[in-house]
Design a protein around this nucleic acid. Sequence first.
RNA 1: GCCCUGGUAGUAUAGUCCGGCCCAGUAUAGGCGGCUGUCACCCGCCUGACCCGGGUUCAAAUCCCGGCCAGGGCGCCA
Length: 439
Amino acid sequence: MKIDDLGCWRRTHYSAEIRPELDGKEVILLGWVRDLRDLGGIRFIILQDREGTVQITVPRNVIDDQTLKKTELLQRQYCIGVKGVVRAIEKAPRGAEVIPKSIRILGVAKQPLPIDITGRTPADIDVRLDARVLDLRRDESQAIFRIRHKILEATRRFLSEKGFIEVHTPKIIASATEGGAALFPIAYFEREAFLAQSPQLYKEQLTICFEKVFEIGPTFRAEKSHTRRHLTEFISIDIEEAFATAEDVMKIAEELMCHVCKVVKENCQRELKVLKHTVEVPGLPFKRIPYDEVIRELKEEKFEIEWGEDIPTAAYRILGRIHPYFYFITEWPTSLKPFYIKPKDENPEVSEGFDLMWHWIEIASGGTRIHNKELLIKRLKEQGLHPESFKYHLKTFDYGMPPHAGWAIGLERLVMMHTGRKNIREVVLYPRDRFRLTP
RNA sequence: GCCCUGGUAGUAUAGUCCGGCCCAGUAUAGGCGGCUGUCACCCGCCUGACCCGGGUUCAAAUCCCGGCCAGGGCGCCA
């Protein structure tokens, strides 16, 4: 089919702006056909744009032949322009509709579409992800990604106002240095390189120069995890602050959570309604539960864990039932935390690391960092890592490393929390997991 | 890596347990026709599917074996 040029047409109004008060006004709408209802003598076209939908009404005996013919060609998801006149009428959705004078078909869509863009006929997540752009037309998808945007906007503003400077650290790194999570190796010209699993070491170094930094960026984990809360590529919100301890940055974390909840609750009512979800603003401060106490609580629930053991998923689910909102788990055994987390001076078996939990899901993890070079080297060795491969990082400890602390929040888990989605893939535009690499 | 469950039109499902009544039913999408106030419009007609390979059987969507794919869980995961 021959498609039309946009020509000099520019949008005068978004769909949501078509109201009875505009009665008689000529408007130009640009968007996509979401649905069609042909009653013979009258035809209804539901036009969707980024702000919503509006009804285009085509009464046969009023419209000129050429425009009428054009409306006969329309199909779901065709990209169109409509020049027409607003008519206030109670029978129309929102009390107003547009009677077209002229229609331009700007893009066509092959039928039948792989999924129902109105969302009435449900599709499995796998099918939806294969046709992601169509899936993103659905109201729920729109709501999720608008909330995600709000969360990011609120987080950036909050941290900036607290004096943090936004930085970007490399995602291509030279060696698999951190231990722990597996890295993705990549071909970097004639050498091997890796995708960064975290900005951890860089953000620590940058406290020397900027004192308070934050980064919102991608991180990569080559774990073979296959659950509803794991991805191989996700966005991490990281902060690092000089002259601070775990307790200082925990305060920032809880204030941020509180702030974000408030922003979402106040600004995303429409989206939350679409998602049939509510957000409660938590009270401050959040509970701080030492690891020892967690072990005790679990024991009361008949879940035995030896001191020094990690907490398995089943146990987290129990904790989520006992503490059904935000809480910190503090004073973790040093052996369970990465090498850069500071052991307590008076009891080195216990660390100044913490996790921020929401129900049973880990939202963030952080702590006071080691800023003493000798201790850091000792801890590296204890974790079976080679100080030689941390040469460049360790060198910065000769350049006046301040005492510092920080944390990292998994953005997607935060978005899941605010949207009530149970599958992390729902809140990422193009998710990457163990098995999905396209689209 | 391990465990469980599943794979039927574009999409979502019924049928599978207990083989035959299924050249596979329904909804929605799609095609054609009709209809001037729909808003999951309606009505009529039509198109379209048993994941792949092997086996058992007179007979397989249905039972068995292998593979592939998917979903969920566990482990792994600062």
